[in-house]
Every structure is written in structure tokens, then in C-alpha cells.
Nucleic acid binder design. Structure first.
Lengths: 119, 119
DNA sequence: CGCATTGTTCGACATCCATAGAACAATAAA
DNA sequence: TTTATTGTTCTATGGATGTCGAACAATGCG
């Protein structure tokens, strides 16, 4: 269907990483993605924005090197590039994910992902 | 001279923190600030932008809760709120600082690299 | 084949943001 | 007091960004 381009480890920049994570919608998506193991269909994670907007956000995350996207059938599967990002910037993504998990301001911000929303 | 308002720990948000750190000029400034201990005059850290621009960046850093600014005479002294930020989001700022220290794209003291190098 | 599902792309739009110069304020130094 | 230093604020500007709807593409299902 569609071929996605992913930056390799060398092309991942710290500011790019931080910028990609600085959006509430994106950070929440990444957080939900980290909670699951392995790949995850985009649609399986509830988001408060239109699908075209989410497509844009996923593009940002992908180009920042945070997620890997591949298509299978009609749906695209996203997975966190945790190991690669950690190898490049040790502790950063992990600390952000941990902080996000315990942050209340992300829950209502964008109204994302109550436990009941997760299928 | 001027009174600065600083957010308390409760008002520091993760996305605000990440956004403030996602700018190369700001991240470099914070990194230099971390290298020094205690307060530091703004002018003591070389920056590649005009002073009005730097004033804007320092405002962003201050409002994000990352730096504390106070004036003494004609100059304003900035200090990193490392302990407070770490108390709120453990590991995040520290990991970012460590990553920034070892990142080549940030090295030459603020010349905004990386954007043009990505093409 | 026709239709539903899933996501991308395009155009549009409003807003934010980094940048800089000019004018201003406050203090220090001569 | 006059000048220099330091930084803020105002205004402008060009570019990036988040958002959406509509149209499109690809696959799966009946």
C-alpha cells in the first residue's frame, strides 16, 4: 500500500525528539503505545482529533524516529522505537514516558484514553 | 528593576517542559547553564540570536519552570531549577541534559544546526 | 463487483513561534 | 550628568504547526 520512510539512528535529533513529544496528542499516543507491547493499529488508540490530524501527528512521530509504521491490509501498524531511541539518547524517552504516565494534565488534555475507551 | 513571575512545581507541565527544551537555542542555553553551578548572567552564555530574541527564549524557559531569573543591578541572573523539575518529573531534565552534552548537532554554542543538515 | 474500513493527501485556515530592529527602562560607571 | 551596559517590550514578519473536511487510494468483505 504505502511505503514509509524512517530515519535511522544517526538522523534522530534530540530537539526533534523533544519537539515531537511536546504535543499532548502525540505524547499521549506514544504513552498508550508504550503500554502495549509490539505493534498496534493506529485506530486501536483513542484520540481526540480527526483522523487526518492523527495522520499528521503520526507522520511527525515517524519522522522524528519515535515510531515505526508499516501497513498490513487496510490498517497501518505502529510500534515504538524505544530501543533505538534509548540507544541514541539514553534515558530520555523512558523518563518522559514514566513522567507522562503519572501526569494528570495529559488525561483531560485532549480527553484521551480513559481505561474504558481501550477496547 | 523587574519582577519575574515563576510557576511553582504544580504549574510545570510535561509538554511545556518538552516544548521549551525542543528549541536548539534554548536547549543549548540550558545545557550551558547546567555546566555552571548556581546563577549566571544571561550575557555570560554565548548565543547566536539577537538579545531581543534571547529575551523571548528566556521568558519561555522561565514560564516553563526551567529557569529562575532575578535581577541584580543591570544584569539578570539565571539559574537552573533542576531540583524542582526533577522532583516533578524525575529523570527527564537530567536525561535531556546528558543527551545534549553528547550531541554534536548542538555543539557549536547555539548555531542552529540540524535543521539544514536533515535534508 | 459494490461497499465498508482504514488511512493518506490536499487545500484551507487560524494560530503559534522564532527572529530581529527600534524604542525604552534601570542601573552602573565616567 | 552624561554615557555605557543590560535587558525588556513593542511591532512586524516569515515560516511552522495543529486542525479539519473533502477527495482519494488500497485492501478486505459481502
Amino acid at each position: 500500500m504505502k511505503q514509509y520512510q524512517h530515519p535511522n539512528a544517526d538522523q534522530i535529533t534530540l530537539t526533534g525528539l523533544l519537539h515531537a513529544l511536546s504535543d499532548p496528542v502525540r505524547l499521549n499516543y506514544v504513552q498508550c503505545l508504550a503500554a502495549k507491547i509490539g505493534e498496534c493499529p493506529c485506530g486501536a488508540i483513542p484520540t481526540p482529533v480527526a483522523k487526518s490530524t492523527m495522520s499528521h501527528h503520526l507522520r511527525v512521530l515517524r519522522e522524528a524516529g519515535i515510531v515505526r509504521i508499516r501497513t498490513e491490509g487496510t490498517q497501518s501498524l505502529t510500534s515504538l522505537r524505544l530501543a533505538e531511541v534509548e540507544a541514541k539518547f539514553p534515558g530520555v524517552l523512558q523518563a518522559v514516558l514514566k513522567a507522562a504516565k503519572e501526569d494528570e494534565t495529559l488525561q483531560d488534555n485532549g480527553r484521551v484514553a480513559s481505561e474504558s475507551d481501550l477496547a
